[in-house]
Design a protein around this nucleic acid. Sequence first.
DNA 1: AGAGCACACTGGCTTGAGCCAGTCAACTGA
DNA 2: TCAGTTGACTGGCTCAAGCCAGTGTGCTCT
Lengths: 267, 267
Amino acid sequence: MSEKPQGNGVEKKLPSRRIADELRAAITSGELPEGRKLESERKLAERFESARNTAREAVRLLAEEGLVDVQHGRGVFVRRKRKLLRFGSERYSKRLREQTGLSPYRAELAKQGLTPRVDCTSIERVVPPSQIAERLEVDPGQASVVRRENWYYASDDQAEYVVQVGVTYIPWLIAEGSVLATSAKMGKGSLYARFEDLGHPMARSREEITARMPSQEEVQGLKLPDGVPVIDVLHTGIDPDGVAFEVTRFVMRADFGGLDYNMPIEG
Amino acid sequence: MSEKPQGNGVEKKLPSRRIADELRAAITSGELPEGRKLESERKLAERFESARNTAREAVRLLAEEGLVDVQHGRGVFVRRKRKLLRFGSERYSKRLREQTGLSPYRAELAKQGLTPRVDCTSIERVVPPSQIAERLEVDPGQASVVRRENWYYASDDQAEYVVQVGVTYIPWLIAEGSVLATSAKMGKGSLYARFEDLGHPMARSREEITARMPSQEEVQGLKLPDGVPVIDVLHTGIDPDGVAFEVTRFVMRADFGGLDYNMPIEG
DNA sequence: AGAGCACACTGGCTTGAGCCAGTCAACTGA
DNA sequence: TCAGTTGACTGGCTCAAGCCAGTGTGCTCT
């Protein structure tokens, strides 16, 4: 051991890191603005007098950091930074719902000059996953819940992006006979107003939050660039009697979305 | 366009994916248990009749997915799955604090058979970052806050891990003269009991949550394996008068930690 | 005008070679 | 006995070359 030759004197850099560092500096300094196309791998290799694989490795590093987007056949582009959308705890507030008429998702996007779109892609009666059955206290062996899948999009002037996917599970005993079990259209006040109609206003919300790298399907479904984790939120809606009447799993792009809770401290 | 030749008939796999898929299957099936050392890159290459670089690429894919840990000079090992530690909203509850005597961090770790350690590495009077100054409503140009840095560790029978780092900022006007400004030892009831002593019980907590890939310093500091994002929580403590008396930024390993809030819906 | 093709780009992936740098155990010599 | 060296492993990184697969342009033929 003893005396590692670190940091003393001239730092001898690995070629791939040197290229990556130089490109990173150009990006963060603004010399390479957002959306700008980088030199091709072959040209980078030539400019830095290295092998194409080495330039390629440098680009991979930047992509992993989320600084650039690599597009097969087109080139490498400086990634556009996005403002974070924040989904807050007032999400479920009755007051806010009645005041604005907008869903919190639409309100948040409007604030940032983006156009929202929400698409209910399926409504089915299914056997609940065990995690869901536990929280709703329903039979895990029967088709005891309705599963509603919603996709949330945002578009700017360039393109439309998938921001998050929400899968809501509702006990069949609650949803039976109402629009919850049948229709994508929720009517005035949306989903949570319907729960109120059915005698289940939301009194408490439990939110279990983790983050992870996306699965392969999520990368495809959300069209996720490299190096972007997802935030996984398991939300449980609870009525004044302590009954869990709804569980929703949100999976959101972490580079787009965040959460913002403001809650009282109890006890 | 038209008819992409996808999925019809025999799927022709890329060599690196084939190797990765086979190893992944062996891992998820339990054939390769946690902690087991994989064949060396050179042996993999030989067994799959490919170049070492190709086997290496396969290993890289698995590491990116968080399935294996690569250790220079030692080998590639199946990563041990960890139960998620959940830090909840009762974190700041007075009742819980008085009942257990344990901090929530210690309580949570005890529940999972892990040994906690918390280390206060520095207490300084500093100029607040702008994000902090805004929330505490203090002068962003003066050394108007005390900065306390805490490192949270967990150890099992194998090793000690860094779970999260918390940096707390307290307005100098509040901390001045108390242990908050001077001592790592907080005494009975810890940090938040001291705020209570000073007339700032926590009435509300705001938690702004994002996830992202770690910076290079965070990778080193938290000794993060590949493919593990961090959860970034900006917590603001608010007293009954609406005064923000403390802001803490937590950065936690997403493979170790998660958050679990249970809050009332207001309005 | 329009459909279609050819070609020149782009990145995607593999090969096989070589050297560098940690790790660890076995050996060597004071 | 034990410190120090050696050498056989491990992964880390680079090279140069080649072929495959998307993308987009411009030309050609109808």
